[in-house]
Nucleic acid binder design. Structure first.
Lengths: 193, 193
DNA sequence: CCTACCGATCGGTAGG
DNA sequence: CCTACCGATCGGTAGG
């Protein structure tokens, strides 16, 4: 009972922190801001968490995990490079819709991670980008994708998805299916022969 | 003589601050960090500038001015919507190449502006995005651009250009002409019928 | 351009 | 979960 309530409060703290970090930035969000938002004194937060840094690390590594798992599954599918890219766009949309605040931190706030966590997060990010780029390269090699600069193509997609994290919560007009269709239409048409 | 040296030092402070704000973020960059980077004590900075906030505001309003001026010129040209979009992509590339550090702040650090400057910067940003979107809408209306969601199309372009600000300094392989060609090829092909 | 310093605020701890 | 408080650091000022 005590244990489950503590875990529950911990989750509330993490979710509240995600929203604050997104709105104000990690450095500009104080533990007193966070305490006020969850309805306690700053000192009391430390009964549930170890440090401010632990919160950021937890949020970012969780979010990263979602992407790595999706990439693992999509890489193994027996479909063409462009179809894999469609699946990846869909992955980004689904993750963002379900976890908007934490995901938006991936773009901006990971540089405030410290020490080993910074390093391992950075490795994951580079690994993800490389695997995405390899799918593009395979598409170019097999003739399904036109001969564009793969870095420009990669970041055209990734940057647009990252903007989507910031934009999505404000927009309610489009369903997930419509979002997938619109993003695929705009982003993939620029790659096809 | 005294005046010109003071102006000179002021420019050094602004340029150095742009690089630090880009790397560490506005909040996480202290005036002592900045002072060290320009080779003086923190207190001495205040002989050249009035406040930390003045530096951020100066950098961001200067950068915004470059974009507004470019937009003014491109809007008036007697060319088609897609040709205007090509010109705008070229504008973003040229500005970024010439002023990489300050431009990269436009995306991330403007939220730390305070009071009236925050407000007026935000108005300029929204104005720029609206005018860009109107060019897309005109293209859709006249049949030159396919019937995509204009917000998705707009931010596909803007997000990709914003990523370019962060990416460019590391990359030296491509000339400006090649960059324009690659970005236009990937971004505009997704819009054309 | 420096030394010396201000009040405010930071992340976090002690002790209950 | 709170009160009380720590040392460190913040942006900025006084005075020379």
């Amino acid at each position: 009972m005590v244990r489950s309530m503590k875990t529950n409060k911990r989750q509330i703290i993490f979710h509240t922190a995600a929203a604050l970090f997104r709105k104000k930035g990690y450095t500009a969000t104080s533990m007193r801001d966070l305490a006020k938002a969850v309805g306690m004194e700053a000192a009391s937060l430390y009964n549930h968490i170890q440090s401010k840094q632990e919160i950021l690390a937890g949020l970012l590594l969780d979010a990263a995990q979602s992407f790595m798992q999706g990439m693992d599954e999509i890489e193994q599918k027996d479909i063409s490079p462009i179809q894999k890219i469609e699946k990846l766009i869909s992955l980004h949309i689904h993750i963002a819709v379900n976890n908007t605040d934490a995901i938006s931190l991936l773009t901006q706030e990971w540089r405030h991670l410290e020490g080993e966590v910074f390093h391992s997060f950075n490795e994951k990010r580079k690994d993800y980008e490389l695997r995405f780029k390899n799918i593009l390269l395979e598409g170019i090699r097999c003739g399904e994708i036109k001969d564009v600069n793969p870095d420009v193509a990669l970041f055209s997609i990734l940057s647009t998805m990252r903007w989507f994290y910031a934009w999505y919560s404000k927009k309610d007009g489009l369903s997930i299916e419509e979002l997938e269709e619109q993003f695929s239409s705009v982003l993939i048409a620029g790659l096809q022969k």
